[in-house]
């Protein structure tokens, strides 16, 4: 019995807890992508670099606050800097819309033209971030590092295995929950949110109803920028901030949004957790788990790792391809433009 419990604790520690945290980060990222897709109808390749930009702005203020001795320990100082990062990112997104995307909207350009334009924006943001903060790894987390340490858990429960919960993980889950509830409240209840849904549902009819498209687009960018910054900062607190990693997050984020159904916010959340858990479960080495769970001499020799962690991209990709082949509009039904 103890074996099974130890096995479950082990699994919680290395699969479930990190999976939930990573899933929340992907979900917030995917929400941004899916909202932009729903309203502006293109896949925004600049989203990863928007996340990087927002995180960079937050990191810079965090450092400044730290140097001034401001602290909200046990919480990381970055939380205090987050609103500033969000505002900077909103300004950048609105500027990009004003100078880049609006022109193509008026031209009624094909979605792929928007996509190419977003690659241009991606380059500029990428260059900007590297120019300002450099391409290297940056740490900016402070405050209490753990909510629960494995050692304490073991001391309290007398199990062999322990569960570690990092502050960043707890923070990620709580923030994600607040963000998601706030977003859904906004979309379901507020006038602006409803007009966004209407616009996404049927653009022509929304125009006939007197909904101002420019306003809807503006609100969308504001929300997308906020979501990108929050996702980026949470990811950075949990791991670290490196511009290139954020660019690479584009793939799992897109996969999450598509798996759930592009344009469908609920789908983006489900997709985020699905991708995250697949990645973590497939790349986890089950040797120790099986040693606990199976009777003594059945324990396996190898690592029992289905896929090396270097191939975690492959996981999002395979799920993406499977969903596209079996259910092209995603599990929750998105738009098929």
């Amino acid at each position: 019995m103890d074996g099974i419990l130890n096995a479950l604790i082990l699994l919680s520690n290395f699969v479930i807890v990190p999976g939930i945290a990573y899933g929340s980060q992907l979900a917030i990222g995917a929400l941004g992508v899916t909202l932009v897709y729903g309203i502006l109808r293109f896949s925004n390749f600049a989203h990863g670099d928007t996340m990087a930009f927002g995180t960079m702005a937050t990191v810079l203020l965090t450092w400044a606050l730290q140097s001034w001795g401001v602290s909200i320990s046990p919480f990381p100082t970055a939380l205090l800097a987050l609103p500033f990062g969000i505002i900077c990112t909103i300004l950048v997104c609105l500027a990009a819309d004003r100078w880049v995307y609006r022109f193509y909207r008026r031209e009624k350009a094909a979605p792929v033209v928007f996509l190419i334009a977003s690659i241009g924006v991606m380059f500029v943001l990428n260059g900007l971030v590297r120019f300002i903060i450099g391409p290297d790894d940056q740490r900016f987390a402070d405050g209490e590092r753990f909510i629960m340490k494995a050692r304490e858990f073991k001391r309290l429960t007398h199990f062999n295995e322990g569960i570690t919960i990092k502050t960043s993980q707890g923070l990620t889950v709580v923030t994600a929950a607040i963000v998601v509830i706030a977003l859904f409240w906004f979309l379901k209840r507020s006038r602006a949110g409803k007009s966004m849904r209407a616009f996404s549902d049927n653009e022509d009819l929304a125009l006939l109803s007197g909904i101002n498209p420019e306003r809807v687009v503006m609100i969308t960018w504001i929300i997308a920028a906020a979501l990108a910054t929050i996702a980026g900062v949470l990811y950075g607190l949990d791991k670290s901030f490196k511009p290139f990693t954020y660019f690479q997050l584009l793939l799992p984020i897109f996969a999450s949004a598509i798996v759930g159904g592009l344009g469908n916010p609920l789908g983006a959340i489900a997709g985020g957790f699905m991708i995250a858990f697949s990645e973590v479960t497939v790349t986890y080495a089950y040797k120790k788990f099986l040693a606990y769970a199976l009777p003594g001499d059945w324990a396996p020799q190898g690592l029992v790792q289905l896929l090396s962690t270097d191939y975690k991209f492959a996981v999002s990709f395979v799920i993406l391809v499977l969903v596209l082949l079996l259910r092209p509009t995603g599990i929750f039904g998105g738009k098929a433009v």
């Binding site: 492959a314 990709f317 391809v321």
Partner: peptide, 28 residues
């Protein structure tokens, strides 16, 4: 065979993914 016939955005994302995987294989 897999990705053509899908919408342009999907082809873009699928190819983005496959190129990352190819590099991961060559690296590892």
């Amino acid at each position: 065979k897999i990705a053509l016939g899908l919408r342009s955005d999907y082809l873009a994302i699928a190819t983005l993914g496959i190129s990352e995987i190819i590099i991961a294989i060559l690296k590892n």
